[in-house]
Design a binder for these strands. Structure first.
Length: 103
DNA sequence: GCTTTGACTCTCG
DNA sequence: TCGAGAGCCAAAG
């Protein structure tokens, strides 16, 4: 199994209404390839089976899909997050600690 | 096979 | 509090 497949599989485990960080995923995979995780996310061939929008940065900010990349459909992702009990404020998770999914 | 790049994270000033 | 720099790993050129 490739590294990316592991990442995707792990992301699949993220329940609705919860989020996780790249660091958590990397840690679960016994690696420090935080950035590679992000890369795998960006590819994301299993979307929306693999909800990459539920993966955020360690500080609770939504990461690249929130402010840098794809400025419009991102809002829909954010909106979906908010519908899933995840409050997003200004590109960051408001109740981050509460919705953070610990593997 | 080496170099570049990235949706990252940590530390320091 | 915020920005810059360094370190990390994997994929693509």
């Amino acid at each position: 199994m490739n590294f990316e497949e592991k990442v995707w599989k792990l992301m699949e485990r993220i329940p609705k209404g919860r989020v996780t960080t790249y660091g958590q995923i990397a840690k679960k995979l016994d690696t420090k390839a935080y950035r590679a995780v992000g890369n795998a996310c960006r590819k994301n061939p299993y979307a929306p089976g693999v909800p990459c929008h539920r993966v955020v940065r360690s500080d609770g900010s939504v990461g690249g899909f929130g402010g840098k990349i794809s400025g419009k459909n991102v809002k829909e992702k954010i909106q979906r997050l908010r519908e899933e009990n995840v409050e997003v404020k200004n590109g960051k998770i408001a109740n981050f600690k509460e919705v953070l999914f610990n593997f």
